[in-house]
């Protein structure tokens, strides 16, 4: 349904992105010309205070919204002029979403939650949706929790289910919007360790966050202010979440766990 990605093309290639909202009589310019290129296998953090335009950028990169001006190509495929349904297909097959609030379906098992995006797959291929979902859950370390409802899972486990759901379609890009915003420090580091692992396996990750501790674990930080990129550079001392976790475990006695 979607055109195949040209080999070697960057995952994200955005030029001069602008987004103007009409709020009553006034115009709100959420993005004022953003250029961004993200290569395959990158792990970057998009940072900024609230109102900086990072959510708007995330929505456009996630093909949930369209820019007022500028061009955006995902996997070398321009999304300009695509219909609502074509965008839905792109989201389904090329993108994975991880939300702050997990957004799992209640009263629905982890397995069925992860299976969900596969149910909306429109390519004619035959999919073993249950098998793929089970594999994704195994990948995030929840092989023994497949039949559990979200209500029976901890916050960290719920977010792992959400990550499995984002991975199950083998997307080109995983977009995570404040993925650790609802989690405590320890679980945050566990999730970041998982992200780093996935990234090491080649998953391209874009994490929207306002916490510097999170961005430490990525390779590159893009900072937005008032709809413009004010900083775009590599992380100087990249943290390793798993090592930090072990260090914390050594510092704190077992009772803290």
């Amino acid at each position: 349904m979607t055109r195949p990605a040209p080999l070697g093309a960057p995952v994200i290639e955005a030029r001069g992105l602008e987004r103007v909202f009409q709020m009553g009589g006034t115009e709100v310019r959420a993005l004022r010309g953003v250029d961004l290129t993200v290569g395959r296998g990158e792990m970057l953090a998009v940072m900024g205070a609230s109102g900086s335009g990072k959510s708007t950028l995330m929505n456009i990169l996630g093909c949930l919204d369209r820019p007022t001006a500028g061009s955006y190509a995902l996997d070398g495929v321009s999304v300009e002029g695509l219909s609502k349904n074509q965008l839905a297909d792109i989201r389904n097959q090329r993108l994975g979403f991880v939300f702050q609030g997990f957004n799992l379906l209640p009263r629905t098992s982890a397995l069925e939650n992860v299976e969900l995006p596969l149910l909306y797959d429109r390519s004619e291929r035959e999919l073993d949706t249950k098998g793929l979902a089970a594999a994704a859950l195994e990948r995030v370390g929840l092989a023994d929790r497949m039949d559990h409802d979200p209500a029976e899972l901890s916050g960290g486990q719920q977010q792992r289910v959400a990550i499995a759901r984002a991975l199950v379609t083998k997307p080109s890009l995983v977009l995570a919007d404040e993925p650790t915003g609802n989690l405590d420090t320890h679980t945050t580091m566990e999730i970041m360790a998982l992200f780093q692992e996935l990234n090491a396996e080649g998953v391209t990750l874009l994490i929207v966050t306002h916490e510097p501790e999170i961005s430490r674990y990525t390779q590159r930080i893009v900072e937005l202010r008032d709809g413009r990129i004010i900083h775009d550079g590599p992380v100087r001392e990249r943290g390793h979440a798993l090592t930090d976790l072990q260090a914390r475990a050594d510092l704190e006695p077992a009772s803290a766990r």
């Binding site: 996630g62 949930l64 609502k84 349904n85 839905a88 297909d89 989201r91 389904n92 097959q93 979403f97 609030g101 957004n103 379906l105 969900l116 995006p117 909306y120 797959d121 429109r122 759901r165």
Partner: peptide, 13 residues
């Protein structure tokens, strides 16, 4: 929210 999620995951209207 469920509807939003389904749409985000690739459901058509």
């Amino acid at each position: 929210r469920e509807i939003g999620l389904r749409l985000a995951l690739g459901a058509y209207g």
